[in-house]
Nucleic acid binder design. Structure first.
Lengths: 132, 132, 132, 132
DNA sequence: GTGGTCTAGACCACC
DNA sequence: GTGGTCTAGACCACG
């Protein structure tokens, strides 16, 4: 149980809601194990200050993730990273990636890409992103 | 110049806005050539009726696609599929697919997927979607 | 799909949060079938007005129940009672009652009640409440 | 007058506030006679240490139970179990159980349980909890 | 018109 | 100090 600094990147120009951006990144940190079980997250007020947003926005993030079972909060004490079962963690980890990939292939098929073209796009994306 | 029936599929449960679903499918039909240049689209009212949605929604769709240069509206006559240059068509065709693929790979990396895992997800998606 | 009047009872003196009271009663109406699938709920503004509370409170209620899968909301259109599978409905229906009953018996055992005493308390409660 | 070890069980995951859990269990021990009149309770600090919680929490517990007349505090000496009249003891004993049972039956009725279903739930709870 | 997001600020309960 | 609830009010996206 220790307090930590959490490097959230906010994109103000994105159409994605603020609370969504924060949620997604925080979820990633938890399910990849970069934030360990029991870690004491910053208080909502503190986090709001460092993110330069409203406490309500942070509260919503914490609450949503608590509903997902990734956080545990105790009144008067703070908010902590919950215990995540190994199986659940693996499911969480692949769920977002799988959904995005299905969507990508779907939209490729919609505009008439062949399987070969899709494979090229995939290799291209892989190279672009994993060598950054 | 002929009037046509356009098979749009609406998913009521999707979080994707209605106008977006229609736009994307109509765009696909145009850039894949399933709707030929000069084709006379249904009137806003008629289309709204057959889609069982508001005329406002269809108006927005036509307007957005006109702004993209895919449609052309003639006062008092109707809305037609515009001329699409071969190069533009190819760009259009790959743009959406490429962006979705980049997003998918990005989100995979975010949750710590290895390149191999991504490749598996890709093959899985390919099989799921192209054999449907 | 029709608009309805929903008789929510607010107890201002209760320690139970306002949004909780509303949620619980609305959930009951849905899972008991008193609100049928597809029913168009009042808009958040309208409901807030008739409940004499903030729109935010109503929004939270709708959102929580949507997360539970009991409601479905479409931007610009409104909020509707979702399709509830028969099995799910039965589970929902008994879950709250079962939990309360377990808690009651637990607390009875904690203060040393015999099984016979508990049975008396149960019969007493049954008579008090079901003959009202 | 003797010092004792008091086996309080804390459930960290419960939504029930910490001070409530402790209060309820301590109250049970007193009214069931498991803690006899005159028993010298641990000091606030000592108890807080063994429960691994804040002294503030224990102070609140002692104070609440003193207000209920179940404890008696003597400056500089400590906190003791007060005299409980036989009638009061019986009232205390049944009060919590009766209230929980009424609440359970109420919530059962709210979701449309028949009296027979309630009886089944009661028997089920009785078996679950009294045979543990 | 509908819901969706974000804000500032108040007051309470808990530790 | 912590989180929990509720408020009023603004602005945007959707139909």
């Amino acid at each position: 149980m220790q307090d930590v600094n959490i490097p959230i990147q906010i994109n103000e120009n994105s159409a994605e809601p603020l609370y969504h951006q924060i949620e997604n990144q925080l979820r990633s940190f938890i399910i990849t194990g970069q934030l360990e079980e029991g870690t004491h997250l910053p208080s909502i007020r503190e986090f709001a200050g460092s993110l330069n947003c409203s406490v309500i926005t942070v509260r919503r993030v914490y609450q949503d993730l608590e509903n997902e079972g990734l956080l545990r909060t105790k009144q008067g004490t703070g908010t902590f990273v919950a215990q995540v079962e190994a199986g659940d963690r693996e499911n969480y980890r692949l769920k977002a990636a799988r959904e995005a990939m299905q969507a990508a292939v779907q939209s490729g098929k919609a505009v008439g890409c062949s399987e070969k073209e899709m494979a090229n796009l995939f290799q291209e994306a892989l190279k672009d992103i994993y060598t950054k």
